[in-house]
Computed example of a mutant assay.
Amino acid sequence: MDLFKGAAKPLDDPDLPRIGHRIDVGEDELHAVLDVETRGSGFDSEGRIAMLFEPHVFYRELGPGPLLNRAVAQGLAYKRWGERRYPKDSYPRLLAAMDIDENAALRSCSWGLGQIMGFNCKLAGYDSARAMVEDFRHDEENHLNAMVTFIISAGLDDELRRHDWDGFARGYNGSGYKKHGYHLKLAERYRWWQGKPDTPWEPEAYTCGPVDPLVAT
């Protein structure tokens, strides 16, 4: 089994309004988040889950000890974000990191459409980072459901409904969001999508369908 490649099914048109309905937002708000996080694609050109390995997170996840020393020696872990440039493809780094500690490596990446950090897997509805990755292989719908679950768990759904882009970016991207202009990018992409027609969708048409385990309470 290839952990990172599966059916790689893209979103269906109704997925955005249907999943957005969980938190009473439309597809424009979700489109804005997806555009800023991954430019709207949850898989790369090789069909693998869109992923960015973060060496500074790997440093933290490993903690002091021989495994960290090994990772530092191989250039896979360093203390502060931005010490080195990201490579064009993060997968070779990830595979090398997994040889040191698979769980810590998977927790040290951002994954999928919403670029959810592996260490946030439980907030996204999964028992482990590996379980999240295995689920993400199959369908971008799973990415989007996990992103909305994370937004709910992190208490950011109110900010998204209010279009409080500063508040949302602070919670979703961290305290350095202004340095990278995440709040401005979110606002710009939301305005752009507002000018596009929405996908026709009515909640009533889905009330008799299969129960979504991430939605059911």
Score class of each variant (00 low, 15 high):
Phe4Asn: 00
Gly6Cys: 07
Gly6Gln: 04
Ala7Phe: 09
Lys9Gly: 02
Ile19Asn: 00
Gly20Leu: 06
Asp24Pro: 03
Asp24Trp: 02
Val25Pro: 00
Glu27Thr: 08
Asp28Phe: 01
Glu29Gln: 12
Leu34Gln: 01
Asp35Ile: 07
Val36His: 03
Val36Gln: 02
Glu37Gly: 08
Thr38Lys: 10
Gly42Glu: 03
Phe43His: 03
Asp44His: 01
Ser45Trp: 04
Ser45Thr: 13
Arg48Ala: 08
Ala50Ile: 02
Met51Ser: 10
Met51Tyr: 00
Phe53Thr: 05
Phe53Trp: 12
Phe58Pro: 00
Tyr59Arg: 04
Glu61Lys: 15
Gly63Cys: 05
Pro66Tyr: 01
Asn69Tyr: 04
Asn69Phe: 00
Asn69Thr: 14
Ala71Arg: 07
Ala73His: 06
Gln74Ser: 09
Leu76Ile: 09
Tyr78Pro: 14
Trp81Gln: 12
Arg84Leu: 11
Pro87Gln: 14
Lys88Asp: 13
Tyr91Arg: 03
Pro92Asp: 09
Pro92Ser: 13
Leu94Trp: 08
Ala96Thr: 05
Met98Asn: 12
Asp99Tyr: 04
Glu102Ser: 14
Ala105His: 10
Cys109Trp: 07
Cys109Ala: 14
Ser110Tyr: 11
Leu113Ala: 10
Gly118Leu: 06
Asn120Ala: 09
Cys121Ala: 15
Ala131Asn: 10
Met132Pro: 01
Glu134Trp: 01
Asp135Tyr: 07
Phe136Arg: 13
Arg137Ser: 03
Arg137Asn: 06
His138Val: 01
His138Phe: 13
Glu140Arg: 12
Glu140Asp: 05
Asn142Thr: 11
His143Trp: 10
Asn145Tyr: 06
Asn145Pro: 03
Met147Gly: 13
Thr149Lys: 13
Ile151Arg: 06
Ala154Met: 07
Gly155Tyr: 01
Asp164Thr: 12
Asp166Glu: 15
Ala169Asp: 08
Ala169Met: 06
Gly171Ser: 06
Tyr172Trp: 05
Gly176Asn: 12
Tyr177Asp: 07
Gly181Thr: 03
Tyr182Gln: 05
Leu184Asn: 09
Leu186Lys: 07
Ala187Trp: 05
Arg189Gln: 15
Arg189Val: 07
Arg191Gly: 01
Trp192Leu: 14
Trp193Phe: 14
Gly195Ile: 03
Thr199Asp: 00
Pro200Asp: 00
Tyr206Met: 09
Thr207Pro: 00
Thr207Gln: 13
Asp212Arg: 05
Pro213Phe: 01
Leu214Val: 03
Ala216Gly: 00
Ala216Met: 10
Thr217Asn: 13
